[in-house]
Structure formats: C-alpha cells, structure tokens
Design a protein around this nucleic acid. Structure first.
Length: 225
DNA sequence: CACCAGGCAAGTA
DNA sequence: TACTTGCATGGT
C-alpha cells in the first residue's frame, strides 16, 4: 500500500505546499457563493471544463433554479436544458435530482442537518447517491461542509505522477491517505492545498503543455510531460 | 480537425 | 477484482 511512499513524504508534501503557496498566495477557494452552489458545481464539473460549468450555473441562476426547493420541483427535462453547456446534460440532470431527493428523504431538505451527520457516515451515504463518487463526495464535504477531507482530482494525480511521487495506477484512497496521513487534519489547509494543485494544473500541468514556469520546476524530481 | 476538460456507473470477463 | 464504454458541450 505504501509502495510509493517514502519516509520523507511529510517534508516533501509540505515543501510542495509552501512552494505553491508562495507562488499563488491565498486562494480562499471554491468558486461558488453558497454550499448548495458548491454541490451543484461539484456535480456539473465532473470531467468537464469549469468554464462550461459557469455557463450552466448562469442558466440556473437566471431561471432561479439555484435553490433546493426549485431543484426539487423543476422537471428533469427542463433542468437538463439549462445544463446543456456543461455537457452530459441529461445525466447531470438525473444526478442533481438524485441529490435533492436524497436531501429530502434523509435530511428534510436541510444541508445543516446533512452536515451534522458524523463525517464518515455522511461520506458513505453520499457515495450511495447515484452520480456522487469519491471526488464529488469529498468536494462536497470539504468545500460545502468545511470538513477536513482531502480532495483528489485529475490535477492532483497528474502533478504527483509527473514528479514520480505516485504510480499511474495508485488508487484514490491511497493518494488521499498520502496527504491525510502526512499533514495536519485541517480543513483550511486541505482547501488551500487542493486549490493550489488545481491552479497549478490549469496553468502549468495540462495534458499538453510545457512546464517551464511551473512553480515546482526546481524540485529534484521535476520533469516535463 | 482532433483533442481535452476539477467523473461516474453499468456492463463485461 | 480489473478493464471498457457511454455520457456531450465548448474551448484550443
């Protein structure tokens, strides 16, 4: 399980953090105004560029659909049309519907009640909702609920992989454990760290891109894609 | 024009 | 358990 983990991981992970933090500064992330918007965004951004998600979110906002009640009552087909710019729009309409149904059945439409649930119990229940996998569940827990859960996404995996810190097939759980077992249990730290990784990914570590100005370029293991 | 983007679930062997 | 495939739009 710890095949790729070395004794120095604690220092390495904090070193990466400080390097990125010095470069980007405080990001106080997730680009959304309310916990519900974080959740909607987390579902809409699945395998999709955030720019496309913004267009769909604007559509929802214009139609006053960014509330739990509106999402409950709007027809799935109507909802889907609003989601077209974000891709997979029929699928994502089903997923949003599945979430608000879950919220009604389990928590009487209350996000506060949902987040009052013990962390691991809630994570497990979120994973049981169709359309919510590990990354989406953890994004909801961290960015909507303020829970100390590290989010692993495609950028996290790619950046760690290109530096040789993990193998290409390392599991989500193992990557998450790498961070959570070697860093303080701190929601604000996890929030900022993941935000820094996403920024780094967007600017310097896309599938096709140079790494010249990458803030991690000075690391011993740094290499180009 | 081909490829990529802050995944997930269902199907197959 | 470990692959493979469908889902879909908009930017580069």
């Amino acid at each position: 399980m710890w095949q790729y983990v070395r004794e120095a991981d604690r220092d390495v992970l904090m070193g990466v953090y400080h390097r990125l933090n010095d470069f980007f500064g405080d990001l106080h992330w997730w680009p959304a105004q309310s916990p519900l918007e974080v959740i909607v965004g987390a579902i809409l951004t699945q395998n999709t560029a955030w720019q496309n998600v913004e267009q769909a979110m604007d559509n929802l906002s214009s139609s006053k659909l960014l509330s739990i009640r509106a999402l409950q009552y709007v027809g799935e087909e109507v909802l889907a049309q609003h989601l077209r710019p974000s891709g997979y729009y029929r699928l994502k309409a089903k997923r949003l519907k599945a979430f608000v149904r879950f919220l009604r059945v389990e928590y009487e439409d209350s996000l506060d009640k949902m987040f009052a649930e013990p962390l691991l119990v809630l994570r497990s229940k979120l994973l049981s909702v169709s359309g919510i996998g590990e990354e989406t569940a953890d994004s909801i827990l961290l960015y909507a609920g303020g829970k100390p859960v590290f989010v692993v996404d495609a950028y996290t995996r790619r950046i760690l992989s290109r530096h040789g810190f993990i193998g290409d097939k390392t599991s989500y759980t193992d990557i998450q454990a790498l961070f959570m077992n070697n860093l303080p249990v701190d929601a604000m730290l996890y929030n900022q760290y993941h935000a820094l990784l996403v920024n780094t990914g967007k600017h310097f570590c896309r599938k096709v891109s140079r790494c010249d100005p990458c803030p991690l370029a000075a690391l011993p293991e740094h290499h180009k894609p």
